[in-house]
Design a protein around this nucleic acid. Sequence first.
DNA 1: ATTTTGACGACGT
DNA 2: GACGTCGCCAAAA
Length: 116
Amino acid sequence: MVPSKISFFENVYEVARLIPMGRVTSYGAIGAYLGSAKSARMVGWAMNNAHHQKPTVPAHRVVNRNGMLTGKFHFASANDMQRLLESEGIEVKHDRIVNFNAYFWDPREHLKIGPK
DNA sequence: ATTTTGACGACGT
DNA sequence: GACGTCGCCAAAA
């Protein structure tokens, strides 16, 4: 990646930081926000670099559409991801977010300011 | 430039 | 409804 140019990854990191505490989102949602709904895999890939990013990227708030902590193995410790989520008030059971639908946060909601 | 991959998602069986 | 397969896009090897 070239610093002079913002890569697709940078976009993903920025959206991830927009996730409010106690909320979670899915890779597909972020991809859709970027305009590439089918590039959910790219979002996860970008997260692989998230550890290199200077600003802390709340990757633990990003899970797959099923609400499962698929990327927990990529953290310093597999338990860290679940632990961080629980720290924010999110209940995680069996590597899956309980009541995921309630905690789900769509980046588009950030754009949508008021009722239609 | 070509091939492989990858923290997903939707569709088909 | 669980399991399997294909598709998709972009970056790294």
